[in-house]
Design a protein around this nucleic acid. Structure first.
Length: 303
DNA sequence: CATTTCACCTGGTGGC
DNA sequence: TGCCACCAGGTGAAAT
């Protein structure tokens, strides 16, 4: 589900709700699959840190975290919550500053991952693999039925900051975009899905971008002209920006951090419209396999 | 090395 | 109703 527009929507939502909040403690399920960092290390690494900012890079959500607030940890364990609350220097007094980030929590949602801001009394969904309790009283929950998602904690004193593997689709220039693909020899759809080239485009937005550019998904990257790449980049930018404005695509169960569905699925021209008439020329949309993924295109509009 | 295929998971859907 | 095959937004390891 989560491609660039969905991940962007979730990151914005979490940032809005939790920026400046403090992580009191983390709970992680015993399944090893969703974790790049062992659960115990994530829990101890996250505790008592302030969330300075939450942002998207590629398909990853990155939490920028401040240094652990030891005074709060002591106050909580020795003299109860009152001491922490009475101290104006603790909890939310300091303005969040992402540049002073001391650690990062990196969330990848895989196919079915969700990140939800919830009230603690709200019953957790099945397949909830992580819960962070926050000083505000809210909870952040990571839910992921298929367990393709990944959670990682990085202490920046000892590890480099997270970097997306490829270029950012909304930042790359026209010249670099064409250069990225022209010397390769694979179907353009496969190239668009390769995150080490371009980070953020997935199955939905690859198909939609190729439709709007009028390019067939099986065309090889080395046989597409520079002017076609200019069109493709333009189409991709417009599709991604429009999808972000509509809160992403809710194909089956995608929801944002507040549990709200997106609306870009209504605008899909080809994705999961096999056999339905093209919105442009009425030709039935065709489905084929490219790079092992279901791929949808209009045989008339795309050449 | 570049490219392609497949395994990793659970759940929903549609055919018989 | 039950059983089964097939499909799903992603990625990285293994095979070619």
């Amino acid at each position: 589900m989560p491609e660039l527009p969905e991940v962007e929507t979730i990151a914005r939502g979490v940032n809005k709700s939790l920026r400046g909040d403090r992580i009191v403690e983390g709970w992680f399920s015993s399944y090893p699959q969703p974790f790049k960092t062992p659960p115990s290390k994530q829990a101890s690494g996250l505790a008592n840190r302030t969330i300075l900012a939450v942002h998207r890079t590629g398909k990853h959500i990155v939490f920028e975290l401040g240094v652990p607030d030891r005074s709060t940890a002591h106050a909580d364990s020795e003299s109860g919550r009152d001491a922490g609350n009475a101290d104006p220097g603790s909890s939310r007094a300091a303005p969040p500053d992402a540049h002073s980030s001391d650690a990062q929590w990196i969330v990848h949602l895989g196919m079915t991952g969700r990140l939800l801001v919830a009230k603690p009394e709200c019953v957790p969904a099945p397949h909830t693999h992580a819960r962070l309790t926050l000083a505000s009283g809210l909870e952040l929950r990571f839910v992921d039925p298929r367990r393709f998602g990944r959670l990682e904690f990085r202490n920046l004193a000892r590890h480099a900051a997270f970097q997306r593997p490829g270029a950012e689709p909304l930042e790359i220039g026209a010249k670099q975009f064409a250069a990225l693909f022209r010397e390769r020899h694979l179907p353009i759809k496969a190239a668009l899905l390769n995150q080490s080239l371009l980070s953020g485009v997935g199955n939905i937005y690859a198909d939609e971008s190729l439709f709007h550019a009028g390019i067939r998904p099986r065309r090889r990257t080395d046989r597409i002209s520079v002017s076609e790449y200019t069109r493709l980049r333009q189409a991709m930018r417009q599709v991604l920006r429009h999808a972000i404005r509509l809160g992403g695509s809710s194909v089956s169960d995608y929801v944002d951090a507040d549990g709200e569905r997106g609306f870009f699925q209504v605008e899909h021209c080809v994705y999961q419209r096999t056999g339905e008439p093209c919105r442009c020329c009425q030709t039935p949309i065709r489905r084929v396999l490219v790079a092992g993924r279901g791929t949808h295109y209009c045989p008339n509009c795309q050449r």
